[in-house]
Design a protein around this nucleic acid. Sequence first.
DNA 1: AGCGAAAATGAGACACTGTATCATTATAAG
DNA 2: CTTATAATGATACAGTGTCTCATTTTCGCT
Lengths: 146, 146
Amino acid sequence: MSPHLERLKAAGYKLTKARSTILHVIEAAGGHVTSAEVLEKVAALNPSIGRASVFRTLDLLTRLVIIRPTYPGGSTTPGYVLMPGGHHHHIICMVCNRIIEFDDCGLEGMAAALEERLHVRLEGHLLEFYGRCDRCRELPLPGSEA
Amino acid sequence: MSPHLERLKAAGYKLTKARSTILHVIEAAGGHVTSAEVLEKVAALNPSIGRASVFRTLDLLTRLVIIRPTYPGGSTTPGYVLMPGGHHHHIICMVCNRIIEFDDCGLEGMAAALEERLHVRLEGHLLEFYGRCDRCRELPLPGSEA
DNA sequence: AGCGAAAATGAGACACTGTATCATTATAAG
DNA sequence: CTTATAATGATACAGTGTCTCATTTTCGCT
């Protein structure tokens, strides 16, 4: 069983067909999906799962910091990223919308310092850099020509 | 004139009534707004500005890394944060959805290292921590009781 | 195993956010 | 002032995400 499903159970939620299917779809996609992709692939795997459950589950996974919504491009449909261990880091190319993931380090120290200074309890973080990837770095920003 | 408007002009975009009104609304709100709030406040200031222009401008400001969409709560309407200097850092309380901003440091070094290692050009970043604020740290996550 | 309380589901109607089109207007350069 | 061109506003539209509620499923307990 996926460790994410175990976290669901540990948090007191029931393990259902819908939830395991949805989580499987996200994991099979490599951790980067849009809600539209999840809807489509879940329907392909099991047409009896309703839309409402998909959105409810995305909400639930977000609250548990198992996934987190992010915006590849402008104000369109959000994407979701898996946050293994509660954190994730990537670069979004603002020209071609490609996502480049990278491993990170130093933020655990920053998190601990913030917890102490601000008296908060932190469970995860998402770090996004915006820029232009190696293939697009010489091109103008999209919209500059518009 | 707001430095953000100057950046628009420097990037080759025209300075229009709609754009300056929308940017003014975001700045007056302290840098944290939802699209619904922008629509409402812009309509109050100048009813002749159409919805389409508001969304178009939010897209444009996002591409220029002047603002950046983020999700305070679950998968509902996105919020937008002003990114002064192209970067922003905050903590989102997952119980009460309060946003706690904090100043940051070390990431410029990480950005420079990534630019060299991955041959990318970075223009901004957003760092979000998820957790529970000082007022909510003893409470369960929302939905745990559901 | 089987029972039962309670959570979770699926169906479908609904509200709303965001998009596309296109004629009209405003910007800014010369 | 003139003119090319970007940007606008209105409207209709598409799609995402929400809500309700009867029905089903999970899972602790015996």
